[in-house]
Design a binder for these strands. Sequence first.
DNA 1: CCTTAACTTCACAAATTTGTGAAACTAGCG
DNA 2: CGCTAGTTTCACAAATTTGTGAAGTTAAGG
Lengths: 187, 187
Amino acid sequence: MRETIEPEGAPDEARGEAARDEGRDEAAVSRFVERFAADLAEAGMQRMAARVFAALLVSDSGALTSAELAERLRISPAAVSGAIRYLSQVDMVVREREPGSRRDRYRLYNEVWYETLTRRDQMVARWESTMRDGAKVLGPGTPAGLRIAETADFFEFVQRELPKMLERWRAQQAERRATESPKTQTP
Amino acid sequence: MRETIEPEGAPDEARGEAARDEGRDEAAVSRFVERFAADLAEAGMQRMAARVFAALLVSDSGALTSAELAERLRISPAAVSGAIRYLSQVDMVVREREPGSRRDRYRLYNEVWYETLTRRDQMVARWESTMRDGAKVLGPGTPAGLRIAETADFFEFVQRELPKMLERWRAQQAERRATESPKTQTP
DNA sequence: CCTTAACTTCACAAATTTGTGAAACTAGCG
DNA sequence: CGCTAGTTTCACAAATTTGTGAAGTTAAGG
C-alpha cells in the first residue's frame, strides 16, 4: 500500500542521463533482483543493502542514482541512504559525484568479490585472535586448551589460503579473457 | 537480574558424571566464551546458539548436558533446547542419549569446521544457481547479463576450491600429528 | 502401568531492528 | 548570496526477533 507519487509521464528533462536499461522483461528482472537480495539477506546482509546491491547488479551501466534506486525498489530516499552507507563501508559500492549535476551516482565496485572475501578474511583473523587468547586461558595441558589451539590453527590456515584462492581466480580470468576473445579488453 | 535457584551445595548424586572442568579461572573462561559467542553472533549466528557452542568448546569433555549448559550460561532450558535444535540442524553438535540415564548430552561435532565450510559451499551453490537464471533473464548480449554470468562463474570457482582447501587442511593435520608426537593418537 | 525426570512446544512480553516522513544540511546554479 | 535539488539525519511506528514461564510430551525406572 505505498503510493509512489511520481508523475509517470514527467517531462524527460531529468531523464536519459543515467542507466536506461530498456527493452527487457522488467517483471522477470525484478523477480531476479528480489531473489538474489533474499539470498544475500539470508546470509546476513541487511535487507535494503542487499536489494540495492542487486539492483545495481542488473543495471547495464553498473551505476544508478539515488532517485533511480528509490523508484525501482519502491523505497524512500532515506532507505537508499542507509543502504548506501553500509555498502560503501564494506566497499561494495563507490560513490561518484557527477561534475555537472548535484546528484550522486552509486557504482558497483569492480572488485566486489575480492573485497568481500578480503572482509571475510579479516573476520577470520579476529576469530583467530580470540582463539589464541582462549587457548592461553584454558592452558595447553587441557583437552579444551588443545581443541581451541587447533581451532586457532585452522583459522590461521584459512587466512593463508583465501588470498591464494583469489589469486588463482584472477589468473583464471586473465587467461580466459586472453584466449576466449583477444579483442574484448576492458577499455 | 536472573536468579538461578540451584542449591549450590546440592548432594552430588547427580554430579560428577559429566564434565567437571575444575581448577580453572572460571571468570576468564566465561569472558572468553562470551567474546567468541559475540564474534559468531556478529557473523550471523543466533546468539544463544553461539553461546552454547562456545560453552561446549571450552568444556574438557566436549560434551555437556542441557542442565549444565543452562547453569553455566544462566539461561532457561527452553533457550538451550532452541539453540541445540539449530546447532544439530547445521551439524555442529550431535545429540547423545546416555544409555543409563534419561538425560541427553550434546557433543561438539568432531568435524565442525568441515561441516561449516561445507554448509557455506551449499550456500554458494544456491547463489550460483540464482545467478545462472539471472544471466538468462538479462541476456548474454547485455553488459548486465555478462556481469552476472561472470559472477556465476566466480561462485562456481569457489565451489570447486573450498573442498580442495579442506583436503589440504586435513593433509596438513595428518602430517602434523604424525611428525609432532607419534604417540598422541585420538583414542 | 504409573511416576516423574528431562526435554520440547507454545504464547507472550521485552528488546531489537527496520523503514518511513519530515526536518536539517549541503552545495550547485542563477 | 539566496534558492532549491539532492542527500542525510532523526524520532518514531511497525514488524521482527528473542528468551521466558508454563503447559505438554516422552520414556526410564520403579
